[in-house]
């Protein structure tokens, strides 16, 4: 069947226009203007690599934001994915109530991240929060700690709001585990594999690419993380919990320093490409075992 070219073009055009408007043109602007001093009030001068040089030699805030982002990407790729995978393996035994548990673990993920941020702000509230009340109840003493705004606890409290909520990982890994053909497992059992060996030496290697997908989902989510920080600590106290998206937001929307903000955009994009590429390599995502 031969279809006229203009008809094909007509079908492609709306999608390409949308892509150009929201991705391609912005991408060009981000890369291009990262070499300019571009500020509110019509300041627009070519300054070469100055934004980049400044960021890495002269801006402690940028270094902190970058460092936090990397730490969170690493924690999310390992601890978050690890916990979710362990829970998925437990649920895959299909004990009584496994479906209910799967549903419950997804609750924090289906509520919007913005709502979750406000919930955590209350849960960790020093005056009436759930955590302080819980500790007071157990110890019998009045316990007061301002979790989100205390130097010592801010980072770990912000991290809590995403690290332990692994619902997404659980459903992805669980789907892969339940899709493993029963005869493969049966063969291993006949060969005398224990339940532990079955999990570690048969199932885990079989879901390798799925785990890779999970690590990509988890790692890239940390390159996007914005609302859970914005609605709780705003990056504080000081710059203790700032990350790249939040710093970028503040630089462009509060300081109106557009060129500098777009330099951060380039750093984020490069970080994203490196992250996805290395996880692809690490998990040999393009190779199939079957």
């Amino acid at each position: 069947m031969k279809v006229k070219r203009w008809k094909l073009a007509a079908f492609l055009l709306p999608c390409l226009l949308l892509f150009a408007l929201i991705y391609l043109i912005p991408l060009g602007m981000v890369f291009g203007s990262s070499f300019f001093e571009w500020k509110a009030g019509g300041v627009f001068n070519f300054i070469g690599l100055d934004n980049y040089i400044n960021a890495f030699t002269n801006d402690p805030r940028m270094i902190t934001a970058l460092k936090n982002t990397v730490i969170w990407v690493l924690m999310q790729s390992t601890i978050h994915v690890g916990l979710g995978t362990i829970i998925a393996f437990m649920l895959a035994r299909k004990m009584r109530g496994w479906k209910v548990l799967r549903t419950i673990y997804m609750f924090p993920n289906v509520v919007s991240a913005a709502a979750l941020g406000v919930i955590f702000l209350n849960v960790f509230n020093p005056k009436y929060g759930l955590i302080n009340s819980f500790i007071s109840q157990i110890t019998g003493n009045d316990f007061v700690k301002n979790w989100f705004f205390d130097q010592n606890s801010a980072f770990i409290t912000v991290t809590w709001s995403w690290l332990l909520y692994t619902g997404m990982i659980i459903i992805i890994v669980l789907a892969a585990l339940l899709a493993i053909p029963e005869d493969v497992l049966e063969a291993a059992r006949i060969d005398g594999a224990t339940e532990m060996q079955l999990n570690l030496q048969v199932k885990l290697p079989l879901i390798r690419t799925t785990l890779g997908t999970c690590v990509i989902v988890a790692a890239t989510s940390m390159l996007r993380e914005f609302e859970l920080i914005y609605l709780t600590t705003q990056g504080g106290p000081g710059d203790l919990t700032i990350n790249l998206p939040l710093y970028l937001y503040k630089t462009s929307m509060t300081d109106n320093n557009y060129g500098y903000a777009n330099m951060m955009g380039v750093v984020l994009i490069v970080a994203g490409v490196i992250t996805v590429y290395s996880i692809n390599k690490l998990f040999r995502m393009n190779e199939s075992d079957y």
Partner: peptide, 24 residues
């Protein structure tokens, strides 16, 4: 080429495009 071009959008952390999208 079009598939590759469009799939590029998957790699971009959207926060990086915040300022240009605001300007547009």
């Amino acid at each position: 080429f079009i598939v590759l071009l469009l799939s590029m959008s998957m790699l971009i952390p959207t926060a990086s495009l915040l300022m240009p999208i605001y300007k547009i």
